[in-house]
Structures are given as structure tokens and as C-alpha cells.
Amino acid sequence: MRESPIDDFWVRARAAVPTLPAAVPEAWAFGATATDADALLSLVLDGTKTGTASSLHDCEADGDALPEPGQLSVILDGSDLPRAVIMTTAVEIVPFDQVSAEHAYSEGEGDRTLGAWRAIHESFWREYSQDPRGFSADMPIVCERF
């Protein structure tokens, strides 16, 4: 049987880091487009991006489990190829308008300010939200650090 690119990636990752578990973690890409995935992955690979945010409403609408500290993820590029492994270190759920400047900085986008984070993410959720409630300033945000 031929292995998938993710399975092959995981075999190589485990060869490099033997303490990784045998089970292949969930694989996913940042953003909503291939361009987003590549740009945000680049920030992860260069060490700039150490955080991400998700709409709790979107997670619920999609049936996605919330991240938990210690959880591993395989990060895909815009072509759905595995490129990185991250480990969640912290998760906090806060209203959009209470996301901290520290978290905004950890996401590595724009000029890394809270103002830029809010503009980028409001635009993102207005365009791509999976939940019919869409964007609101008090919507719950899953702030994940890795």
C-alpha cells in the first residue's frame, strides 16, 4: 500500500524526533486560501508565527474539536503538502474585542499590532466565517499558542 504524503512526512518526522507518537496527528492549513496557507506557513517556519486564532462559532459549525495543550498538528502548505509540526502550548477563549496585544503579536501578521490583527481578522471572518452568525466584536475567539 502506498503511503500518503502526510504519512510519509510523519515517518520522517518520527525518524528525526523518535519521541513523537506513532499516531499521525491531524493535518490542516492556516487561512482559507492556498495563498494564505503558504504565507502563514512561511511565518511559522521562520519562527515569527507562534500563535493562531479561530472563531469558536466556526469550530462548532464545522464540528472541529478545540485545540488542547500538548496536542500536535501537521501543518500543510497551500498545495496540501505537509511542511511542519506544531505543538499547542496554550489555549484561551476570549471575545474578539478582548484578544490581547501579546496574542496579536504572536500571530506575526501585518505589523504585529493589535490594530492590524483586528483589521485582518475581522475582514477574514466577515468573508470566510462558516457560522451564520458571522463576525461580531464579542464573538468568542480561540487563541492558540504553539
Rank of each mutant, 00 (worst) to 15 (best):
I141Q: 01
P18L: 08
S42P: 00
A101S: 14
A90G: 02
A39N: 10
L40K: 00
V142M: 09
G51S: 08
R126F: 02
P132M: 05
D80Q: 14
C143W: 06
L56S: 07
T48A: 11
V91L: 04
G115T: 13
T33Y: 00
G115Q: 06
A27D: 02
D64C: 11
I141N: 02
A15E: 14
S129P: 03
D80V: 09
D97W: 04
S123F: 09
E122T: 08
P132G: 09
S42G: 15
D80A: 15
M1G: 15
T88M: 00
E92L: 03
I93P: 07
G47L: 09
T48V: 15
A32Y: 01
I75L: 12
R83E: 03
G134W: 04
V99C: 09
D80S: 15
Q130M: 13
F135N: 00
G63S: 10
F124D: 04
E109V: 06
I93C: 06
A65C: 07
V17A: 14
D138V: 15
G63W: 06
D77R: 08
V24W: 08
E107C: 02
E102C: 09
A15T: 14
E127M: 08
L20Y: 02
M87Q: 15
T35L: 02
T33W: 00
A65P: 02
R118F: 08
G51I: 08
G110F: 10
A16Q: 15
F135H: 09
A53Q: 12
E109I: 03
A119V: 13
